[in-house]
Amino acid sequence: MLKVEHLTKVYPNGVVALDDVSFTVSEKEFLAIIGLSGSGKSTLLRCINRLVEPTSGKIEWYGKNIVGMNSGELRKIRRQIGMIFQQFNLVKRASVLTNVLSGRLGYVSPRISLPGIWPKEEKERAARALHRMGLDDKAKSRADTLSGGQQQRVGIARALMQEPKLILADEPVASLDPVLAHSILRHLEELNRDEGITIMCSLHFLDLVHRYANRVLALKDGRILFDGPPRDIDHARFKEIYGEEAEDVRATFVDAPSQ
């Protein structure tokens, strides 16, 4: 469904975030992206829906090149690709319901969205999404009154409103404690398994990668260092990805990968 070819991103300050990255993603994959901070994970995810404008290369979505697409076409692609974020990126002062409904903006006409008078069917759709995330009683609450885990579930509900074929998850659990991290990832796993939604998820902890992903893309300095199933990341690969000092970190925070 997604084919990335020779993707390169150079920021105006000269930083090369992605350097000739190529890979393909098939439907129903749960793809984890790992790498150190600054290795290009966020930039890669943001290039796919062009929140970040690629410098060169090709991103094909069902055969259509997203790079260079005009904004009308781009919006039609974007609405098929949900996105969740490390900082949840909810509008804090708005209600949970409004936040979830905003996931529908790619579908409804401005006559509905700008006055903010949403039809019943959209509200029901939002209620279903919230129900699925176990947040039935929170619809009227202000988003910033929710806990971190609840906010991230609102973020997923917002993405669900898009009826997405793909969800881009940018460090979705990095701001949450381990228990909540599993809860959020289980939700993504469920969507992947039951709805067949493809997941591209950047993660820091290898144990989470092993537990949830069926494929790993490892980035270092904007290049793909590894692309394969999680079990193939052995000790040497690990050091290659995270650097020599990383061993201590892994011993403390990460279950040793099966070798």
Partner: peptide
């Protein structure tokens, strides 16, 4: 952040302003 999130849903410029900026 919220602006980015609203953009990612496929919203137009005016919708991004209305949902991502105005409440803030």
């Amino acid at each position: 952040g919220p602006i980015e999130a609203v953009q990612a849903t496929g919203a137009s410029w005016s919708e991004v302003v209305r949902y991502g900026v105005v409440p803030q």
